[in-house]
Amino acid sequence: MLREVAGIRYVTPLREGGSVPGVVEADDYGTYVVKFTGAAQGRKALIAEVIAGELGRRLELRVPELVRFDFDPVIALGEPDEEIQDLLKASGGLNLGMDFLPGALGFDPLVFGVDPLEASRVVWFDALIGNVDRSWRNPNMLVWHRNVWLIDHGASLIWHHNWKSAAAASAKPYDASDHALARFSPEPAAVAAELAAKVTDELLTEVTALVPDEWLLDEPGFDTPDDVRRAYRELLGARALDIHRRITTGLRQEKQPPPEWLRPWVEGKNAT
Results as ranks from 00 to 15, higher is better:
L2D: 08
R3M: 13
V5F: 00
P13Y: 03
P13V: 00
S19E: 00
S19M: 06
P21H: 11
G22C: 00
D28K: 03
Y29P: 11
G30E: 04
A39S: 13
R43A: 04
K44L: 05
A52M: 02
G56H: 08
G56K: 06
E65S: 08
V67G: 02
R68W: 12
D72L: 12
P73L: 04
A76Y: 05
G78H: 01
Q85L: 13
G92I: 04
N95S: 06
M98P: 03
D108T: 13
D108P: 12
V111A: 11
V111W: 08
V111S: 12
F112C: 11
P116M: 05
E118K: 09
E118W: 09
E118N: 11
R121N: 07
F125H: 05
D126H: 01
I129H: 03
G130K: 02
V132C: 12
W136A: 05
L142H: 09
N147C: 09
G154H: 03
A155T: 14
I158A: 14
K164M: 13
K164Q: 12
A166H: 08
A169T: 08
S170W: 08
Y174A: 06
A176F: 02
S177M: 00
A180E: 10
A180T: 11
F184P: 05
E187D: 15
E187L: 13
E187K: 14
A190D: 15
V191Y: 05
V191N: 06
E194T: 05
K198L: 01
V199T: 00
D201N: 15
L210R: 08
V211L: 10
E214K: 07
L216N: 07
E219D: 09
F222A: 10
Y232A: 00
R233T: 09
L236H: 13
A238S: 15
L241H: 06
L241V: 11
R245N: 10
G250S: 10
L251K: 14
R252M: 13
R252I: 15
E254R: 15
L262G: 11
E267V: 01
G268P: 03
G268L: 03
N270K: 11
T272D: 11
